[in-house]
Design a protein around this nucleic acid. Structure first.
Ligand SMILES: [Zn+2]
Ligand SMILES: [Zn+2]
Ligand SMILES: [Zn+2]
Ligand SMILES: [Zn+2]
Lengths: 144, 144
DNA sequence: TTGAAACTGTTACAATATAACATTACATTC
DNA sequence: GAATGTAATGTTATATTGTAACAGTTTCAA
């Protein structure tokens, strides 16, 4: 999905939900959405630095927190890096295939927790709020 | 499983596989295995400091790398913290239930990737090396 | 129009992790 | 058992990632 399309959709979503989509937030989202690979917070910071004077980590992390909270982006925990959401709707679970060769990440997106996991969780009385699966390996483009 | 039992098993495993289970590695494993909650690298460092003079981060991270490599411990990526493996055998995938209230983590352990994920991965030709699921929420002891 | 809440600016710092290079211990082979 | 190569450790410094705290500003609605 094109960066413009992502921005447009988030714009609409925010307007409809009375959420403020400020310049900093838009800028951070644009940067992440235009990247082919996950970006670290300080990568985003560096990119921001090309458009505004000397931005600070706090600024970036605040924008990231906002974007995460509304699930416009996700954090790849094993990389400390961020990607734009490609599922098109808010979801409590995220799944990613991470290529350790080229560094690209693809969001898989299952709407529901797999049955066998769900069962184990229900059995223990655990109350789920969110879940995340990160699958590492080699993408098909990077194989011999 | 008791700390002693874990240590004994790893000892045997290492002897049988010609792997060196040195004092530092043993100490790090003991510290992690005796903890009720996941420990950060610097928590381990602090504990080590009670037994040896002024250990350094490098020392801890080396021990952790070793223990991770042989899957005696796992890293909870969303917490930057480490737990002892409770599955009893090496495995390419790990699953955890993380209680955001009390901080305790339980290893679920499915031997295989859930079918629906497996299918998506196979469809794209992705070659898996390892996978990790972290489920956040509230454990049954922490619920009202 | 004013008061509360959300957002931003700024400074400083905390927490997590690695690089680089010197030294020591260990196992293997001659 | 000396020579040798590899694995493990010691040491110093630094890189990377993420927050705390508090002051100032904007927004929106009562
Ligand atoms: Zn998503
Ligand atoms: Zn690849
Ligand atoms: Zn395990
Ligand atoms: Zn709990």
């Amino acid at each position: 999905m094109s960066t413009n399309k992502v921005i447009k959709e988030v714009e609409v979503y925010c307007r409809e939900h009375g959420i403020r989509f400020t310049d900093q937030r838009r800028m951070a989202l644009e940067i992440i959405a235009s990247s082919k690979k996950p970006l670290g917070a300080y990568d985003v910071l560096a990119e921001m630095g090309k458009e505004v004077e000397n931005p600070k980590p706090t600024t970036v992390y605040r924008a990231l927190d906002f974007l995460l909270e509304h699930a416009f982006i996700h954090k790849i925990e094993s990389l400390n890096a961020f990607v734009v959401c490609h599922a098109g709707h808010s979801h409590e679970g995220s799944q990613f295939m991470v290529c350790d060769d080229c560094g690209k990440v693809e969001e898989v997106h299952l709407c529901h927790l797999p049955k066998d996991l769900k069962k184990k969780i229900d059995d223990t009385g655990f109350q789920l709020t969110r879940w995340n699966t990160e699958i590492h390996g080699t993408c098909n483009r990077c194989q011999p």
